[in-house]
Design a binder for these strands. Structure first.
Lengths: 241, 241
DNA sequence: TAGTATAGGATTGCATGCAATGTAAATGAA
DNA sequence: TTCATTTACATTGCATGCAATCCTATACTA
């Protein structure tokens, strides 16, 4: 029975993306056992694309396969998150160093400058609204991915994507903090960004590396804060925005 | 038609391992286009496990999928190799730093010491045979994976495995160098290992990190040498041992 | 002759059937 | 009542058929 739904590019990719979303938003709870057939029914596709998708997500470590019993949504403890963030900090540091050593093109440098300027505007407006935090998050992501690009190392870029899609790139956690505190993290982050930009412009590789390492560790303290505030055991990977 | 061959644990895993092997040893040449059906016929299985295996290998970046035209064995240029080695050097450096900071257990430290001792023996024997290089390679791998373990960061360990299975962990390239030169790299590497062990024992994180970074870059110059010696365009990923 | 259109072939992408495997429950014996 | 054995069920793992898609080659027209 060929389903006559709105046909889309690739079913498997769609299923993979959808499942990833379900996991990251917590709609599939951490630790939950999932079966091919169950997901297939849920997503209204056959088992085949689900199977492929699960294989992919297993490599991404979002699900873990138990030998002959299917899969389970991975559970992320604060410890797991800490490890991932520390690795990411190291890789981001490397990217910053390479960026400083290689030097950015005029356009790339312009992108970074604009990021700083736009955040300056946000800070000047002094408005603590959800919408503002979302804007900041976008800018922030742009800043970091641009540096990764400037590094010129494709492998590094890929690995960074991997450890970045997982737990909250930088910002989303601010949503659960009191507005004032959250706004404070924006200001703090902006200071780091300004210094980073300077280091990259002046070709100061080591300085850029260590500034970035420190900067990328910020979410760690926020994760701990989150646990205090909510009293939860396992961490939501991403806040619905 | 249920094939009545010698049944084995999991077919998909076996196929994945076999394909990985075929690619790393160059039996499937870099750049070669591969089809599900072709590989299925070659390995005498159906297309299903091959499909799964290819999905896995795509994530490992050993093959790249062209949209609707199946897959192609990835081509590794010297540039690609350089990027991977540099990322690996960074991650290994991080592992060394964490190892020094956390401190090793008594057993772990013993494993590292034994590695150093065994290589000392090899050097003392002054025999330049293939068998000796293979022994060294094993010891070397043990040394590095042990440090990764000591780091205590599981994510880091996983990422290291990933960038390590790919291009020649450390030693295999010595096979294509003149024996004397190759033996020289063993001696050189041993000096690094001794210092690393010392740094880790004394909890000198920064020193361990930078020693390891430098140490892990050694294969890079060897790769360049290899290109000179053979005049080849793309690099063999692993030498059949 | 060159360019376009069409037909054929090759290959993927997906659905589904079937067997193997492992788990849990139920029944029987001590 | 408790433990062992067997049976039934749930679930994966694999094979294969079929349709959709893309590439290529050939033929036809300008």
């Amino acid at each position: 029975m060929q389903s006559n739904k709105t046909s889309m590019a690739s079913n498997t990719e769609a299923v993979t993306a959808r499942l990833r979303e379900l996991i990251l938003t917590g709609e599939l709870p951490q630790g939950e056992r999932v079966t091919e057939s169950g997901l297939a029914a849920l997503l209204e596709v056959s088992r085949t694309p689900v199977r492929l998708a699960l294989a992919t997500l297993e490599q991404e470590e979002l699900v873990e396969g138990v030998p002959n019993r299917g899969f389970r949504v991975r559970r992320f403890t604060l410890e797991d998150i800490r490890e991932i963030i520390e690795v990411r900090a190291n890789l981001e540091g490397m990217a910053a160093r390479l960026a400083a050593e290689n030097g950015a093109t005029r356009e790339q440098e312009a992108v970074l400058s604009r990021c700083v300027d736009e955040v300056d505007e946000i800070i000047a407006e002094k408005v603590c609204e959800r919408e503002v935090f979302r804007r900041f998050s976008d800018i922030n992501i742009r800043f970091h991915t641009t540096i990764a690009k400037i590094s010129g190392n494709a492998t590094l870029q890929r690995l960074l994507e991997r450890v970045t899609t997982l737990p909250f790139l930088i910002a989303p956690l601010v949503y659960v903090l009191p507005d004032e505190e959250a706004f404070g993290t924006i200001i703090e982050g902006q200071r780091d960004h300004i210094r980073l930009l300077e280091a990259i412009q002046q070709g100061q590789g080591a300085r850029a590396e260590f500034l970035m390492r420190e900067h990328a560790l910020m979410p760690l303290s926020r994760a701990a804060l989150l646990l205090q505030h909510t009293g939860a055991k396992s961490l939501p990977l991403r806040q619905a925005v």
